[in-house]
Write a protein that binds this DNA or RNA. Sequence first.
RNA 1: GGCGGGGUAGCCAAGUGGUAAGGCAGGGCUCUGCAAAAGCCUCAUCCGUCGGUUCGAUUCCGACCCUCGCCU
Length: 340
Amino acid sequence: MVKPDLPSPISHLPILIAGQTAVGKSEIALQLAERLGGEIVAVDSMQVYRGLDIGTAKPSSADRARVAHHLIDICDLAESFDVAQYIRLAQKAVEQIQSRGRVPILCGGTGLYFKAFLSGLGEAPSADPELRARLEAMPFEALLRELHERDSAAYEKIDKQNPRRVIRAVEVIRLTGKKFSQQRARWGETAGEPKVGSSRRDDRTSQPVFRSSSAEGGRAVPSISNFFAFTRQPDDLRRRIDVRVDTMFASGLVEETRELLKHGLEENKTAMQAIGYRQVVEHLRGERLLAETIELVKTKTRQFAKRQLTWFRRQLEPEWIELQPDESPEMVGRKICELI
RNA sequence: GGCGGGGUAGCCAAGUGGUAAGGCAGGGCUCUGCAAAAGCCUCAUCCGUCGGUUCGAUUCCGACCCUCGCCU
């Protein structure tokens, strides 16, 4: 194939783009991909599922024809998926893209996937459905006691009010016979260190600063980063979320959900968690009127966007870029090309 | 116009003569194999207004305002 005429290895570095739902990151990723000769790798825990199209704002076939996309529609509703599978596939996708002489652009909103991709995951085994079902049926106190006995270090640190966490810890201990606390990647010390070979990051302190407002301060060399996070002013984002949700319903989210129900949507725990689908399923069960459901989906989406921001702020160290209402994806794309 | 119910946080809503439950929304946060998930914290110096009774009223009384329902 055509070897790239790109000047330096830096051009092959993956570019990471995180952002809240509806900020407009996908459009920008598309722009970047076209400018840099890149391919997009979705970092999205819901777009991996085939069939969840409208509600996950999956890239259109036109967009996918424009730029190659990866890690979308890779999983059937009958299958389960998790972070570990994700980072394995993402690693592979990135390498393949690079081997083609193209630029991997990882773009999405799933913070955990970014973090695991960057920092690794550890050796623990994946979930065991039967065991998990058994643990879920146990009294919570018994789980806590078991964790305390078999891994006091984990017991000390864990959120003892969060069943999900406790169950996973006990699950890993039972599955491996080893302590949970010894099987996780140590994110504390080496946090944020990119796994993907050549990826480069600056070492500024972790202040999530908006590029526009700071960055200067006499530093001649602007921090060079390949990891960006987009945000918008709350009102701006809210408007975009409203429009997006209205559009989803107008495009047939209810019909799509009804169809997915016939193909096992309710049996897939993860997919059933997806905002939009979950609420529509409830509506179809007669729990709520359509108009109320639409409003609810907007609220849930706003809350999700807020949690995403918290996650990105606290767990990741991206370069922050606040998108302006009047800024086009082209403008942002150009701006970022200058930054990298 | 008359009679009856009601006016408590952005919304819904409990409540007591002794100084304001809860839920939702909002804000903040935790986060390692279900993550668009799960969990945690926070949020009324004040109870329509003005008077009165009382040691003390959001709670009792009166007037007024607003509101819902019924009647004429």
